[in-house]
C-alpha cells in the first residue's frame, strides 16, 4: 500500500472531533502533497525542458494595407486570425456559438453576416472562427473575407464585445469564488480516484486559467476531462465565463497517471 494512502487515513484518525465539529478531511492540496512527498522520496527529480521551435517559414498569401492580420488554419473547420494588436482588453474572452448569441459581440455579428460561420471565439489579439463541418472548400477565400471584415471593424473603432455585455459580467473575485467552490465540491472529489487534482491558477476578466496536477498532469485524457467535465461544471457555476485555458506543463509531471501504472517488473 503506498505510504500516501496510509498517511491519508492517519490524518483522519488524528483529527480532533468535538461535538460541534465535522470530521477534518484532507483537502485536495493535502492529498497532492502526500503523493508528491512520496514521489520525491523514491525518484531523483528531473525536469523536462522545451527547446524553441524554429519557424518553418510563412506562406505569403496576400499583404493588404492597413492593420496586419495573419490567418492560421487549425483544422478543416477552424481558423485563427491573429491581429497585430489586442482586439479585446482586460483579459476578457467570449465564445459565440451561433447567431442567437451574436448580440454579445458586434464583431461576431459582422462575421456571421458572411454566412457559413458557426462559432466565433474572441480573446486577446486572436479571433478564432469555426465553419460548418460539411464545408470542405479551401479556407483561403473565406479567410480573406473574414480578415477583411475584422480589419474594417477594428479600423472603424467598433467594439468586439458589446459594452452592455461586459458591464453585466461578474467581477473577477466573484468568478474565482464560484469556480473554486465548483473545484472543491464537485470536480476534485470526482477526479481524486485518478490521483488527479485541478486548481484555479487565475482569473483575468472572465477568462479562467487552470492547472492540472497529480494524475491529470500529462494524462492523455486530460483534455477530454477538461472539455467534457470541467468546462460543463464551470459554465454551470458561471454562465458568463469566457475561455477556460489549461496552463499545465503536461511534460513535466512527477506523478502522471500512466507512469504510475504497475509494470510487469512490479
Amino acid at each position: 500500500m503506498p505510504s500516501w494512502f496510509t498517511k491519508l487515513f492517519e490524518k483522519q484518525d488524528n483529527s480532533s472531533m468535538g461535538h460541534d465539529e465535522r470530521p477534518s478531511f484532507p483537502t485536495g492540496s493535502d492529498y497532492l502533497d502526500m503523493v508528491m512527498d512520496e514521489e520525491t522520496e523514491s525518484a531523483p527529480e528531473r525536469r523536462v525542458v522545451r527547446a524553441p521551435v524554429l519557424d518553418p517559414g510563412e506562406e505569403e498569401f496576400e499583404s493588404p494595407k492597413g492593420l496586419r492580420i495573419k490567418a492560421a488554419i487549425l483544422s478543416p473547420t477552424s481558423c485563427r486570425f491573429m491581429v497585430e494588436r489586442p482586439v479585446v482588453e482586460g483579459g476578457y474572452s467570449l465564445v459565440v456559438l451561433g447567431p442567437e448569441s451574436m448580440h454579445k459581440s458586434p464583431l461576431a455579428e459582422a462575421l456571421f453576416d458572411l454566412g457559413r460561420i458557426e462559432a466565433v471565439i474572441i480573446h486577446g489579439a486572436n479571433v478564432t472562427v469555426a465553419r460548418s463541418p460539411e464545408e470542405r472548400s479551401d479556407w483561403k477565400p473565406l479567410a480573406t473575407a473574414i480578415g477583411a471584415r475584422i480589419r474594417s471593424h477594428l479600423e472603424a473603432g467598433r467594439p468586439c464585445i458589446a459594452h452592455e455585455y461586459l458591464n453585466e459580467l461578474p467581477s473577477e473575485s466573484a468568478i474565482r469564488e464560484r469556480l473554486e467552490k465548483a473545484l472543491d465540491q464537485v470536480i476534485n472529489p470526482g477526479i481524486a480516484a485518478h490521483s488527479g487534482y485541478i486548481q484555479l491558477d487565475r482569473v483575468e476578466g472572465n477568462t479562467a486559467y487552470i492547472e492540472m496536477q497529480g494524475g491529470c498532469q500529462g494524462c492523455a485524457a486530460s483534455q477530454m476531462t477538461l472539455r467534457d467535465g470541467v468546462e460543463q461544471i464551470f459554465r454551470e457555476a458561471v454562465p458568463q465565463l469566457g475561455l477556460i485555458l489549461d496552463v499545465t506543463d503536461h511534460d513535466s509531471g512527477t506523478n502522471p497517471f500512466y507512469a504510475s501504472m504497475p509494470t510487469d517488473e512490479g
Binding site: R50, P56, E58, I73, L74
Partner: peptide
C-alpha cells in the same frame, strides 16, 4: 534536464 520531443505540427500562416 530531459528534452521534450512532443511538439504539434507547426501552423502554416498567411496574411489576410
Amino acid at each position: 534536464a530531459d528534452l521534450s520531443l512532443l511538439y504539434d505540427q507547426p501552423l502554416q500562416t498567411f496574411d489576410v
